[in-house]
């Protein structure tokens, strides 16, 4: 029963909208429900990227620490978002820190589990990749816009 409810949560999440029932079940088989209190970390830079997070409630901020500057925050993720893409490609290590800025509920998906299923079922893998590719292109465009510093003073 518990697994079935996770399938539902996955199918209802905007990121997986329109995904076939059987694929939701495949993902659900790698998922567990988690909660992170405000100030807690979903992942930290340098640690193995062995899972990713499907955010259901709350907000998470991506940040990186520079000596003398403290954490620099560059992206807030909320309900409907995915936290964590480093699990997709070797060396499977987190590049940033992800901190919950309020009580956050998410599904944590076991990355190794999902990668294995994608290898065994390329149709499933392709569906998954299409969604992650969209996410990555959107993030890339957003990052480029941020990098341009369009609101900066002209001198």
């Amino acid at each position: 029963m518990r697994t079935r409810s996770l399938d539902h949560l996955i199918c209802e999440h905007p990121f997986f909208a329109g995904l076939a029932r059987e694929y939701c079940e495949l993902i659900g088989g790698c998922a567990r429900n988690i909660r992170i209190d405000r100030g807690g970390y979903l992942f930290r830079e340098g640690e193995p990227a062995d899972q990713f997070f499907v955010i259901r409630h709350g907000h998470v901020v991506l940040e990186i620490v520079a000596p003398g500057k403290g954490p620099l925050r560059f992206l807030t993720l909320g309900p409907g978002d995915i936290a964590g893409v480093a699990w997709l490609v070797p060396p499977y290590r987190w590049v940033f820190d992800a901190q919950a800025v309020e009580l956050t509920r998410a599904l944590a998906i076991d990355a190794g589990c999902l990668r294995d299923k994608a290898e065994q079922n390329h149709d499933f893998g392709y569906e998954l990749m299409k969604r992650f590719m969209t996410l990555l292109v959107q993030r890339l465009h957003a990052a480029q816009l941020q990098m341009l510093d369009v609101y900066g003073s002209p001198r």
């Binding site: 907000h59 901020v61 991506l62 940040e63 500057k69 403290g70 954490p71 620099l72 925050r73 560059f74 992206l75 807030t76 800025v101 957003a142 816009l145 941020q146 510093d149 609101y151």
Partner: peptide, 14 residues
Amino acid sequence: VDHADQRWHGNVGV
């Protein structure tokens, strides 16, 4: 905001 430090609890991003 495009950039923030940890004193900012609002949204960061475009």
